[in-house]
Amino acid sequence: MGRFWTSVTYLHSLAGPAVMLVYPLYASVMAMESTSKVDDEQWLAYWILYSFLTLLEMLLQPLLQWIPIWYDIKLVFVAWLVLPQFRGAAFIYDRFVREKLRRVGVATKPRSASAAATASSPSKGKDKNKFVDFISPKKGGQEAY
């Protein structure tokens, strides 16, 4: 019975990197090589959320170490973000992140599968410039070009 639990523990420790990094890396490369923009949005949203989750986890580490099932909760949440049946990353980004960006004036219109097809419109460049202006530092009080 000891070997069984050792094997289960070992597989459990491999599940995190496989679900959180290996599969998303593979799927991101496949999304970049496809012609569809919908999968690009899913994987960009995933990497944004995963980065935020990792940063939050680093900041809250003293508190999270007292939650014995934190790793399992994180694994289930990230699996929901990753699995194509759920498209959790795109859902979270559309529902919460995009709303916050819209409030500060970065995102101007909701994106969906149909909006992704019209992503080559001229207004897309203006939205991108707004975001770049929002996140880029100003030099000497002047706008950076």
Rank of each mutant, 00 (worst) to 15 (best):
A27D: 14
T9V: 00
S7R: 04
Y23T: 03
L11R: 11
V38Q: 15
H12Q: 06
Y10C: 03
M20V: 00
V38F: 14
V22C: 04
V8P: 14
S13I: 00
P24Y: 06
M32N: 08
V38E: 15
V29Q: 07
P24L: 03
V22S: 05
M32H: 09
Y23L: 04
M20D: 10
E41G: 06
Y10Q: 07
V22F: 09
M30G: 04
V8D: 05
E41W: 10
T35M: 04
S36K: 11
P17R: 03
A31H: 09
V19A: 08
D40Y: 08
A18R: 01
M30E: 10
Y26C: 03
S7V: 07
V29K: 06
S34N: 13
V8K: 07
G16T: 08
V19H: 07
E41R: 09
A15K: 01
D40R: 13
P17T: 00
A15F: 00
S36M: 07
M20A: 12
V38R: 15
E33C: 07
P24G: 05
T9W: 04
L11C: 14
L14Y: 00
L25Y: 11
V8N: 04
S36V: 06
D40T: 08
D39T: 12
E33W: 11
L21E: 03
V19P: 14
S7K: 00
S7T: 11
A15V: 03
V19T: 11
T9D: 08
A15Q: 04
M32V: 10
L14A: 01
V8M: 07
P17Y: 00
S36A: 09
V19E: 02
L14V: 02
G16S: 09
E41Y: 12
Y10N: 09
S7Y: 02
S7W: 02
A31T: 09
K37G: 11
V22P: 06
K37I: 00
P17D: 03
V29R: 09
P17G: 01
Y10K: 04
S34G: 13
L25W: 14
A27P: 04
Y10A: 05
